[in-house]
């Protein structure tokens, strides 16, 4: 499934990185600890988190994440948006809490 389809299906906001929306999603990983994500997120995964600072872009780029999904109505910082545009890794958003959006995405990807 493409990121753009997930955006439509789960009614997500797109903050930045539009040029990466055509990418395929291979799965997702939910965590707010950067080392945990470094160790466990796989290539092509969406990263679900409440972190908003620019270091999440460095991690996403190093791990070849397909997109970042921010929970609970949080917004990325300006420096994070800038890096998202440079790297072409979209930042998405939802008003839902981590548990709810992880569950919905899990159901969607395992249909």
């Amino acid at each position: 499934m493409k990121i753009s389809e997930v955006v439509d299906q789960l009614n997500l906001k797109v903050f930045s990185g539009y040029k990466g929306l055509h990418k395929e999603i291979l799965g997702a990983y939910t965590s707010d600890l950067l080392s945990d994500v470094m160790g466990n997120l796989n290539e092509g995964y969406i990263w679900i988190t409440l972190q908003t600072h620019q270091n999440i872009m460095a991690v996403s780029s190093l791990k070849d994440a397909s997109a970042i999904l921010m929970v609970k109505g949080l917004s990325p910082e300006a420096s994070t948006i800038k890096m998202s545009e440079e790297e072409g890794i979209p930042i998405l958003g939802t008003e839902l809490e981590t548990f709810e959006i992880s569950g919905k995405l899990f159901m969607l990807l395992n249909q």
């Binding site: 950067l34 080392s35 945990d36 470094m38 160790g39 988190t49 600072h53 270091n55 999440i56």
Partner: peptide, 15 residues
């Protein structure tokens, strides 16, 4: 608070 400092760095390196 930034999500660093979880005590996973050196173990991650070693692995």
């Amino acid at each position: 608070e930034m999500g660093f400092g979880a005590g996973m760095g050196l173990p991650n390196i070693k692995k």
